[in-house]
Amino acid sequence: MPPNFTTQNLTQQLNIGNIVSLGSYLYRSRFKQYFQLALIAHLWLFVPIYGWAKFYATAGLISRLIFSDIIGQKESIRSAKFHVNKHFWQFLLTVILSILICLLQFLIFYILCSLASGIIYLILATIFGLISQPINQVNPFSNLLFTIIIIPTVIAVYLSPLWFYSRFFLTDLPLAIEDKINSIQAMKLSRQLTKGLTLRIIAIILIAFFITLPIQILLWLILSFGFSIILGRISDLLFTQSGNNNDFIISSIVLIALNLINGIILMPFWQSVKSVVYYDIICRREGYDLILRDRSIEQTS
């Protein structure tokens, strides 16, 4: 634990900055181990279904290891993997259900927003006598009333997935940490724990994203340049004719490689942040971290 974080600090509510800072520290503390697990997890993505389940189970494994560090009960990978594998298929099922629910919520929200903005426009246009003025299809924003209504609507629609996802932000943590829990219970627990904290979690996600953004940009620039040169030369050696097809293949390989490397490096960081958020909420909702310590001891015995 970093010197500025004590047991007393962790039993109190952490501010957003402390959560991200502690997540970063935990991520760096065992970077090599987490990197290896993340690498294995991403390689499993090339194997359909079972490999996808392995990917999300490994993400849960990283969360469990990080959580055990937070509560001061370090656990071996073997022991943590034994507990995580009890819910092996539940991790994939939870992700699928969470995505479907978020998509359904987004679709309903999008339809309601579209209807509401259309009705509001018709009402205001009628009141101000603008109903006879059609919206310019080339430049709809030339209509001031349309612009005033559509901009907040577009912003709300684009930000809504983050709002819906924030309620399922912690779904993999209960599966990785708790015993005798299934996908539905994990999703319900995540929604229960995040109730009233949606804006706080969104702020944590955004801050963590912007902190990692320079690293992602630098990584993309360096690796995309390097991969393009290497793959371009390989393509010239293997293919006598160069064309758009070769360029498309090279671009696709570079994109896949960049996404994989980016995911491998950042996956443990996000699992660290989520683990700190889970610990912070559990401590405040359940009262004291002695409950967590007892729970951890029981699971590792």
Rank of each mutant, 00 (worst) to 15 (best):
T6W: 01
N9D: 11
L10M: 15
Q12H: 07
L14T: 03
I16V: 15
G17E: 08
I19V: 08
I19K: 12
S21Y: 05
G23A: 05
S24K: 13
S29V: 01
R30P: 08
R30E: 12
Q33M: 04
F35W: 02
Q36Y: 15
L37F: 08
A38S: 12
H42L: 14
V47T: 14
P48H: 06
P48K: 05
G51P: 01
G51F: 04
G51R: 01
A59P: 03
L61D: 09
L61C: 07
S63H: 13
S63P: 03
I71W: 00
I77D: 12
A80G: 04
H83E: 14
V84C: 07
V84T: 06
V84D: 05
N85L: 00
H87D: 02
F88E: 06
L92C: 11
L93N: 15
V95P: 13
I96E: 07
I99D: 11
I99Q: 15
L100G: 10
L100P: 09
Y110K: 13
I111N: 10
C113M: 13
S114I: 02
A116S: 14
G118W: 03
I123T: 09
L124G: 11
T126D: 12
F128A: 15
I131T: 07
I135Q: 02
V138D: 06
S142N: 10
N143M: 01
F146Q: 01
P152Y: 03
P152G: 09
V154G: 08
V157H: 08
S160D: 09
L162S: 15
L162E: 06
Y165V: 11
S166R: 00
S166P: 02
R167Y: 11
R167V: 08
F169Q: 04
P174D: 02
D179L: 10
I181Y: 07
S183T: 09
A186F: 00
L189C: 03
L189R: 02
R191E: 14
Q192P: 05
L193K: 06
T194C: 11
T194W: 01
K195Q: 14
T198Q: 10
T198M: 02
L199F: 12
R200C: 07
I201N: 04
I201C: 02
I202G: 10
I204E: 00
I205K: 13
I205S: 07
I205H: 06
L206V: 08
I207F: 13
F209K: 13
F209Q: 10
F210I: 05
T212K: 12
L213G: 00
Q216T: 11
I217W: 01
W220Y: 14
W220G: 13
I229Q: 01
I229H: 00
I229P: 03
I230Q: 00
I230H: 01
G232T: 06
I234G: 07
D236C: 05
F239I: 12
T240V: 08
D247Y: 09
F248P: 03
I250M: 15
S252N: 14
I253C: 10
I264G: 04
P268I: 08
W270D: 04
Q271F: 04
D289I: 07
L290R: 09
D294H: 10
